[in-house]
Design a protein around this nucleic acid. Sequence first.
DNA 1: AATAAATTGACCACATTGGTCATTTTTGGT
DNA 2: ACCAAAAATGACCAATGTGGTCAATTTATT
Lengths: 207, 207
Amino acid sequence: MSYSKFHSLPSKKQVRIMNAAMKQFVQSGYEKASTNEIVKEAQISKGSLFNYFHNKKDLYFYLIENALKIVDVIFAEVDITERDLFKRLSQIGFIKLKIQQKYPLLFDFLKSTQLEQSPEVKNEIDSIMMNILNVSLSRVYENIDFSKFRDDVNPEKALHILNWTMLGFAEAQKEKIKSFESVGIELMAEWDEYMKMLKRAFYKEEE
Amino acid sequence: MSYSKFHSLPSKKQVRIMNAAMKQFVQSGYEKASTNEIVKEAQISKGSLFNYFHNKKDLYFYLIENALKIVDVIFAEVDITERDLFKRLSQIGFIKLKIQQKYPLLFDFLKSTQLEQSPEVKNEIDSIMMNILNVSLSRVYENIDFSKFRDDVNPEKALHILNWTMLGFAEAQKEKIKSFESVGIELMAEWDEYMKMLKRAFYKEEE
DNA sequence: AATAAATTGACCACATTGGTCATTTTTGGT
DNA sequence: ACCAAAAATGACCAATGTGGTCAATTTATT
């Protein structure tokens, strides 16, 4: 049972279907997301979709579980012994980048689930998300060496600025990511410059 | 003709209708936005809505024009003689805050129009937006004194970081804005701290 | 009280919905 | 080359929702 039908598909097809579905759910929310549009975009037939998944709700929660699994993998890969904030963030940013290439809408999808209002899924979402996501997120800043910060810098606010900069940068680069294949290098170089600027701003100068 | 029916309504009612409509359009996009949901949220009858506006498309473009008018007012108020970037941004941030209180979704709505894919409105949107918005936006950074920047700081990247921080801060404070009435003071104080941090980061120390 | 203006919601033809299932196509073993 | 099993298809369905109308009712003005 479970999702064996879907999992025995060629993985390219699986990805195509998942991305098409995530796109719809992000764009329209759970209720208004159209299975007709999903199958059109994924280039499969209606019958197939409902052969892989019992119904729309099943598909939706499969996507959530899959996304959470992937996010967990990211945070599991974090090298917790690296105590420098900026190097830690570089790690995560790089892993995220790889994921964005395969599932461009994964993070948007996860975000959209938390704004979901539909009573048919809201409660279930809340109970799933509550535990997992916060635990993972806290690992990002675990064991960071805050003594490197200048005394007149509020670390919490510095983290916010860093976060917002990361989000903004990622958003701005999204189209470029999709078009290029191995855009990694020059992108990371640009990101490095932003990091350098903020490092100089927040860290003690240690020459 | 035009929108005289709508404009002769009590302004509270006008605002209620516009916010309800913007909410739908942001949430669901032009095509899937439901006029039924709009009238329910705005607490008016279906007949009234179509008395004020000829049809859904009319309503949509009325909202766009109105939003653009408001945005233009913001940028018209910018004191162009203030050459310090941070003070300039403070001005704009403060004006924006006032608008967010009356129309919490105005900026989200404008953003959503530019992502709109529906062929029924896409071209028209493009032709309206093209001119106006970019012109206004460029005024924000007009006549700024870039000589205050440290030599090793790339001004363009600094502007990006500032922008992303502003967006992130605004997003984070959105709920608080709605609930409080005159939240302005403590909010601006917190924002000031972020500004101070980034100022110290990007400006020459002039002690 | 009479008239005009504003508001209502039942109603319409039509489009789209999530989901089914008989039929066709593809697959893999012999 | 053949066939049976598996996979994929899309016409089809009842149900719901759509943007928009308009005769009837309520409210405001004279």
